[in-house]
Design a binder for these strands. Structure first.
Lengths: 341, 341
DNA sequence: CGTATTTCTGGAAACGTTACCATGAAAACG
DNA sequence: CGTTTTCATGGTAACGTTTCCAGAAATACG
């Protein structure tokens, strides 16, 4: 059916060993033999069988990528960050989306056993410690957005704490005395860190400033409900920090519905700086995260782990405050259409 | 180093054959042996080596996905459409982005030889006929957004022609007599089909309506330049149809800069209906394409090709006209924040 | 009870490649 | 010229799994 190295050897009149050597450039081969091999190979349109090669080489040139439920362009960006780096180093990406929870990740990881040289696992809902037992000991792993406290996994995390701190400091700096937060899912590591940043900022702002929290779930609808809850408070907050932009969109909608103007009556801010944020009206203040870079860096770390030329590292990706109209303090950006990039 | 089926066999006190049978449920195994095998397997945390299995089984449970330069959320959506379908059928996705041009695709395809059971190749710049020689004969392939005229590849294409036709008909229906088009790259199949639709619509509109074309390249900057070109015409068009939304964004910016109001002085429409389109001001009229469905359907077609239970099929994905403010004819949608989904 | 069938089992051959070792020829060295 | 090194080559053993075949034990059948 499909042509193997043996067919090439036969046609070129040499042994399979010589064919392998000639094609891979490993070991000495006479010019004559090399010519005959390349000729026969081209004529037969021979392509080496990757699986067979991997079996003996113990290299697959593939990285496994396990992601939770793909959320918007986050997924897209992280992959786009990985791909060029991986490709440049001769690796392909084996994707496995829609995995959350310990058991599902374990399964996905298992299915990749023996088909990847390393893995990048995004696991915001399951900690590194919990994952430790599920991950194969013989395959290097880089964790993304994952609580790796007390483990020595390589990991890259967004500086959620710092970003939230920055944003809430900005809000209190604008003079807000009663600040609300719509939190993300409690199980989610990113959400917990953002909440921690919020609390820290409220704490350091002194006794004049108080915080109030409402539970969200990272969805627009969840943000809508939580915002209504906050608006009904006797002492309703004049600023609301949402754990992500989607919830901020829902929150603005809810607040408007409740007759509150944004940002005049209540300031709103999000996290992630999703692309549509600047096109909303009012444009949405947020915390910018370079997700692309996270993907790229994850590949780099994984390559180091495989080469063994660097110890496991846990990196923090810094964030940037993006102040727009929704929290009242921002410059009134022209609704885009102006700037190229 | 890593544990193999032999280790399990040794620990369970049976042969490797029996272990294989017990674990895969193939062939008869006594209850006692099965119990011992599953026990030993669990205790050793054995995971079969995918590569080794694939070699003999001749199945990898992997689909190769070759995409051109990842364009915005198009890439994301198509993958998101594929993943659930693939996963449901027990397949993983091996990704290879950033491949355009005949040689690069050939290389990517070659690198996948023997590691995938089927391939999905998006190739808007290289036709199926040209690709035929590069594609392996023994691996089923589904082509996406590709000119497959005269070949019998399975393929899924967006109805670019019909979509463009619809949109330009809408513009002429609004009374525009001089209609411009900013085209995409000439090498691009989607672009050519959209242009064909434009010309057909102009043609059928009668002698009163004339069309004028300016060359773009699918980028914002390209749209900007092309729009300026059109605006400088002696008989400048009162409506401009752009081959994609990115160029429409650039075009609106250019027209404004040239002192033309949109949509009052000139109507603008795009193609693709990217998410930010509705948030722009004016909101952007466009042609909606269900990219997600394209990915999902591609996987289905590939599965049929592998199972051999259906002949190669070439499908057309229909489009939907989305009329918004930028071409003057649309309803004035509230700038979102209202509707959930 | 003898034979034919089933059930269970293990040894060995595949799968397509590269890695290891051995061999002979040629070249370099003293 | 004899000896050592290098070069070129091929045979064969891996890699970890499944599949094929054959044999042994147990069961069914007449």
């Amino acid at each position: 059916m499909s042509i193997t190295i043996r067919d090439v050897a036969l046609k070129a009149g040499v042994s399979v060993t010589t064919v392998s050597r000639a094609l891979n450039g490993t070991g000495p081969v006479s010019d004559d033999a090399r010519r005959r091999v390349t000729e026969a190979s081209a004529e037969l349109r021979y392509m080496p069988h990757g699986t067979a090669r991997s079996l003996i080489t113990r290299r697959t040139d593939v990285f496994g990528v396990v992601l939770p439920d793909l959320f918007g362009e986050f997924f897209s960006e992280v992959i786009r960050g990985m791909d060029p780096q991986a490709q440049q180093r001769g690796y392909h990406l084996l994707l496995s989306g829609s995995h959350d929870g310990r058991r599902e990740i374990e399964f996905a990881v298992g299915a990749m056993r023996g088909r990847v040289d390393g893995m990048i696992v995004m696991s915001p809902d399951v900690s590194g410690a919990e994952l430790a037992a599920s991950l194969p000991p013989d395959v290097p792993v880089v964790l993304l957005n994952c609580d790796v406290a007390g483990t020595d996994f390589s990991a890259i995390n967004v500086d959620n704490y710092g970003g939230a701190l920055q944003m809430v400091r900005h809000l209190t700096g604008l003079g807000h005395r009663r600040v609300g937060m719509i939190t993300g899912s409690a199980a989610n590591f990113d959400a917990r860190e953002r909440l921690r940043g919020f609390r820290a900022a409220i704490g350091e702002a002194g006794a004049m400033v108080t915080g109030v929290e409402a539970a969200g779930d990272f969805t627009e609808a969840g943000g809508y409900r939580a915002a209504l809850e906050l608006a009904r408070e006797a002492d309703a907050p004049t600023a609301v920090f949402c754990a992500n932009d989607s919830m901020a969109v829902g929150a603005i909608s809810a607040l408007r519905g409740a007759g509150r103007r944004v940002p005049d009556d209540v300031a709103v801010a999000g996290f992630d700086d999703i692309p549509i944020g600047r096109y909303l009206s009012p444009s949405l203040s947020s915390v910018r995260v370079d997700v692309n870079r996270m993907g790229a860096r994850a590949v780099e770390l994984l390559c180091h782990a495989i080469a063994g030329d660097a110890p496991p590292a846990q990196e923090l990706l810094d964030t940037r405050l993006v102040v727009r109209r929704s929290c009242g303090g921002g410059t009134d950006e022209p609704p885009s259409l102006q700037d190229f990039r």
